[in-house]
């Protein structure tokens, strides 16, 4: 069942320029479509500034989209009434990157993790405490944590507190914006395993944002690769990780994962800086850094097309317009319905 459908999402931030430079818009997210199935994980990867957090904020209702639609369980969020929005709020929770900034330093852990409950349900004090203890147990924190303040915990423990809070309302989707990036390497696996356990036990769906390609391959059913506000590749996690198709994805994963010995994979590495989202390059946004750039890349923007069981936006895979009678299937926005995406690969 499709939980969340994001269709052609655009988020532009107007920025004030200097006296002479004039203003502009940061094209943080520029036409992104994907869907999240119930109980599944969509991983989002891409370099810093490509719009991952902005996408997450729009999904969380922290930013209003410039255009595009979000449908939750089939209902367009923009047309929801107050009760519907409230139900959406309950169903979508979040865990953020910095465990030191995401917990109010003046609140006790018990109050922190039951706050969503207290807001949505009129809970008696004793009952809230009961629920808090149960949630602490779910994330394997000792009972006595309930009366402590956040500063008495380590980063990993704080992230457990943040997860307990996100679970309080029994949501259907949790947005994880780099949930382990700020943690010690030794603790990351623990938190990731906890998240996977919780998914198996509670049937949660995750929107898992990360820089860490090994983590995304480990955690996700489906992977979305973003570059400068655009989706460049979207497909089953195993396929994308082991046989990336888009030159950008290839470069990303070549650096991160050892390739299969039977597999021939040219080791491309990324050079140069990500261009500014204030003035993204015309045509394919990746053409300024692409190792296999072609003449048409700077002129034409490649559409997302189905290839090898996934969607890729690159002219290597897109048809040459007007050549021959053969036209491969093009993915219209919002029609990412290839069976391979709904089933996904086992992570």
């Amino acid at each position: 069942m499709t939980l969340l459908e994001v269709d052609n999402l655009v988020k532009h931030f107007p920025v004030k320029g200097g006296f002479f430079t004039g203003g502009g818009v940061v094209r943080a997210v520029d036409g992104v479509s994907f869907r999240i199935e119930a109980g599944r994980t969509v991983g989002v990867v891409g370099e810093s500034g490509c719009g991952k957090t902005t996408t997450a904020k729009v999904v969380l209702g922290l930013e209003t989209p410039t255009s595009g639609t979000l449908r939750f369980e089939g209902a367009d969020l923009q047309t929801l009434d107050a009760a519907g929005r409230r139900r959406y709020r309950r169903s979508v929770q979040a865990v953020f990157q910095d465990p030191f900034a995401s917990l109010n330093p003046r609140m006790r852990v018990g109050a922190i993790i039951t706050e969503p409950l207290v807001v949505h349900e009129q809970l008696a004090r004793g009952e809230a405490r009961e629920r808090a203890l149960r949630l602490l147990d779910v994330v394997s924190l000792p009972e006595r944590s309930i009366d402590l303040f956040p500063h008495e915990f380590s980063g990993g423990q704080r992230q457990r507190i943040a997860i307990a809070r996100a679970l309080a309302l029994e949501p259907k989707l949790i947005v994880l914006d780099e949930p382990v990036s700020a943690l010690d390497v030794s603790i990351r696996a623990q938190i990731l395993n906890l998240l996977r356990d919780l998914q198996a036990r509670l049937g949660l769906a995750y929107l898992f944002i990360t820089h860490d390609l090994a983590a995304v391959a480990y955690m996700s059913h489906t992977v979305a690769v973003m570059y400068l506000g655009k989706l460049v590749e979207f497909g089953p996690a195993r396929a994308v990780a082991t046989a990336p198709q888009h030159p950008y994805t290839r470069a990303l994963f070549a650096a991160a994962l050892p390739s299969h010995p039977d597999e021939r994979r040219e080791d491309v590495t990324l050079v140069g800086e990500v261009p500014s989202p204030l003035a993204p390059p015309p045509g394919c946004r990746f053409h300024t850094r692409c190792p296999v750039v072609m003449e048409r890349c700077a002129r034409e923007e490649p559409p997302l097309v189905h290839t090898d069981g996934r969607l890729v936006a690159c002219h290597l895979y897109s048809p040459t317009p007007g050549v021959g009678p053969w036209q491969p299937q093009r993915a219209a926005p919002g029609s990412l319905t290839s069976p391979s995406f709904t089933t996904g690969g086992a992570p």
Binding site: L62, P116, V119
Partner: peptide
């Protein structure tokens, strides 16, 4: 701008 304020919005406060 701190995350705990954003999360409070997400929690429905």
């Amino acid at each position: 701008e701190r995350d705990f304020v954003r999360l409070a919005i997400v929690a429905g406060c």
